[in-house]
Each structure stands twice: as structure tokens, then as C-alpha cells.
Nucleic acid binder design. Sequence first.
DNA 1: TCAAAAGTGTTGACCCTACACCCATGG
DNA 2: CCATGGGTGTAGGGTCAACACTTTTGA
Lengths: 236, 236
Amino acid sequence: MESGNEHATTYQYHAEDKVLLAVDCIIFGFDQEDLKILLIKRGFEPEKGKWSLVGGFLKKEETLEDAATRILKSYTGLDDIYMEQVDTFSEVNRDPVERTVSTAYYALINIKEHSISNKQFSANWFSVSKAPHLIFDHDKMVQHALRRLRNRAATEPIGFDLLPEKFTMRQLQKLYEAIWDTQFDKRNFINKIHAMNILDKLAEKDMTTSRKGSFLYKFDAEKSKAQNDKSFDFKG
Amino acid sequence: MESGNEHATTYQYHAEDKVLLAVDCIIFGFDQEDLKILLIKRGFEPEKGKWSLVGGFLKKEETLEDAATRILKSYTGLDDIYMEQVDTFSEVNRDPVERTVSTAYYALINIKEHSISNKQFSANWFSVSKAPHLIFDHDKMVQHALRRLRNRAATEPIGFDLLPEKFTMRQLQKLYEAIWDTQFDKRNFINKIHAMNILDKLAEKDMTTSRKGSFLYKFDAEKSKAQNDKSFDFKG
DNA sequence: TCAAAAGTGTTGACCCTACACCCATGG
DNA sequence: CCATGGGTGTAGGGTCAACACTTTTGA
């Protein structure tokens, strides 16, 4: 139901207030070590030069998802990034220039496999824990997105595409540790992952990080699908 | 970050498209038996006379939360209902009249303790499982809200205020069964609830449903607070 | 031969599930 | 005395967390 002149029986949408609708993109990235977030330097007043999320305004003929995709690409060159909605922020004065409601989207990507081809806006990765303060309510948005990400990581095998195609258990563990900002016992971690039965262990080893070398694994989409109904439940 | 004329260094928000922003309220209620949802009859074209969620447009000077509260009150008389955001729906043609983006909010209330004082819009409770088809994308909104509600019920002691102040285990079980649309074993249910340690068992019995009578319980806010950190985890 | 990372199993505690019978009472 | 709903306990299996030592090999 949408109504305006409440309780009227004849109705004209055009009597209603219209507002600016924006999207802001919280792009998390992983670089085999830290959970990072992508920020750009705001190119106009107010708050020109400050670090900010990638964001922009919704156009009349696109969905919020489309807007997020378009805007992300236009500021960074990042393409084909699937984002999920986080929340919509509507504090009246969240943007000092003009009433703007903003819907936040997030994604988690592999830093190495996506290049920031547009350098114009100084797009840059920051450790989540060391990121600068952001403009407006963007810090709050990041917090919400982080919560959402963790929820997600707890219930679905998220993030195997953040790693190289072949990865070591150690790398996978680092990813989960970065997402949860904590440490896991490696034996328990491996057991948990094994129990999920969604990986293939390869014969190859990665020799770059130790003399002994560590076995490589691959995410197995088939297996994962087979496990789909069984509830995935990774608790930090 | 909000931008419009992308990549411009001087910037005027007013060049941007503005759209109508609506809120739709998914009000779940419980009547000691079924999980219900509150619908009203749409009073204007298009889809006049069809069942619809309670909804309306955001005004410039209010937050979405405020709008949800105002609109819910204006159509039903319901007051003091705390709603949570579900999602924002932005399909370009979701409303055939005009481009409208809508943010859905939900709440869970005790039907008996809140009266629908405004009869003008035929506000009516429907069993979630037997509700009529709704206009626009409202069915989808309800599905999202239901998912959110279950998530919530799984991780927090939700819904004790849906029951009378004093309630029986049987009633509480019915509530959880309604939310999850399933059946629980009563012994296991009681054990689980006891383990949470958030209820007081009273000396009184409710004699209305059986000859033996069943003990009444009360939600104990103190205890609940004490358990707060410990993770609550109710799995259907 | 040593340093550095990889790999590996077990035990105890707890939790969850499945399951069936007696109790109290009003009629 | 009986029909109805209320109440109760346990045993077995599975899961989780805690925990320390051995292996490999390049330098």
C-alpha cells in the first residue's frame, strides 16, 4: 500500500514529497592477510578530500542494485561485483547538503583478482581495523555491513572465491580469522572445514611459505551443492 | 559518498533524480494460536479494494522509522509499535503509477493487547498461511519479513510480549510453533526454555484449559539481561 | 642440525534428540 | 471412574573445545 494524502479516497502520488536516494557500497576485500575495505577520496564539497565509501545517486530508471553496480564501476572500474543490500539509512540530516536517504550494499572480493582501473578517485584499500573515520554516517554503515558479513559467513560457505583457486588451509583460516577478527585453533579449524565436505584436497603442495610445503585445496561446487540442505553453521 | 554528475569536481545535488520513497509495514500478530498478519483494504486506485500492507510515503522531514510509525498509526490507530527494517525494494515498475522505492518494516505484536481503533480501512488479521494475495510486491516483502522474524526468534528471546504477562509453557510453545510453522516435542521445548533461564515460574495455575491446570510463567527481565552475553540459540 | 611452518587425534564436557508414562481434576 | 491436557527424566549420539608433539626440508 502506498498512500499520501492519508485517508483520501482519490489519490495522486504527485502530491508526495520526493527525496534523493543514494547507494553506498561497502566493498570488503581480502589480501591473504587482512580484511580490508575500499574507500575513495571524495571529490567535491562538502567534506571534499575526506575518505568516503563509494556512493552515488539512484537514477529514475534503475534499481538500487543497478545503481550500486554502475556507481562502483564508475568510481573504481570494478565490474561484475555482486553486492547484497545491508540497510537503508534515513536520518534526516545525515547528508548536510540535502535530504538524502541512502541504501548500503556490500560485497566481499578478492583484492588480487580485481583491479582498480580507475585511479581518478584515489580508491584505496584500508584494513578494516585501521580505516580512517569516514564522512556522514558511513562508519555506521560499515559496522552494519560487517555484522551482516559475519552472519553470512556463519551460515554459508562464503568467501572461497576470495582465495586463489587453489589455496592452503592456512590461507582459508586466515580469511575466517580476518572476517571474525579473532584466532582459531588450527586443528579444530581444519576439522570443522573437513566436516563441511566441500573441498577437494589436491596432491600438489604450495612450497612458498614453508620448507615442508602445505597441501592445496580447491572448492568443490558439486560437493557444496550436495551439502546445501544440511545446515552450515560456522561459529566463531 | 554521494555523487551525481559522476566525476564532476563541483557538485550540485539538485541535478539528481528524486523518487518517491514509501514504507510498508508488515505487522505480525499472535492470537495464542496462529501467526497472523495485518492487512488493510487499499482505498484508492490502482488496485483499490485489494488487500495490502499498511504503507505510505516518506515525508521530507522524517526518518523512515518515523514514517512507518506515523503511517501505521494513521491507518490502524496502532501506537507505540517498534518496527525493524527488513529491506528496501526498488524494482522500477513495482508500483505501476509512478516510480516508488519502498522500505519494508516489520513488528510482532500481541493482538489482544493492541486494538485496531481505526476501522476505516478494514484493517484485519489474516493467518500468514491463509492470507490473500497482496498487491505489487507485497507478498515478497512478507516472505522477507518472515525470514527476518525467524532469524530473530532464533537468536533472541523474542516475543514474550506477545503473550499475556503470565503465560503457560503450552502457550509459549504455540507461539514458537506458529513462528516456525512446525511442531516441537513438549519435553524438549520446556528443557530448552528452562535452560535459557529467563523465566519465573509462578505458584499460580491457569485452570482454563485443563482440569489439572498448568503453571504460569512470567518473563524475567533481570534474568534475561544476565543471560544477555551468553548466546541464545533456538533452532527450530 | 636447526628453524619454521605443516600436519595430525583424543578426550571430556556438554547438548541435543528421541521417546512413554503418570498426575490431577472436573464432570 | 474416565477423559483430557499437564507434567516429568534419561540414555545415546554427536559436536565442540582444549590440548602438544612430530614431520619435513632448505639453509
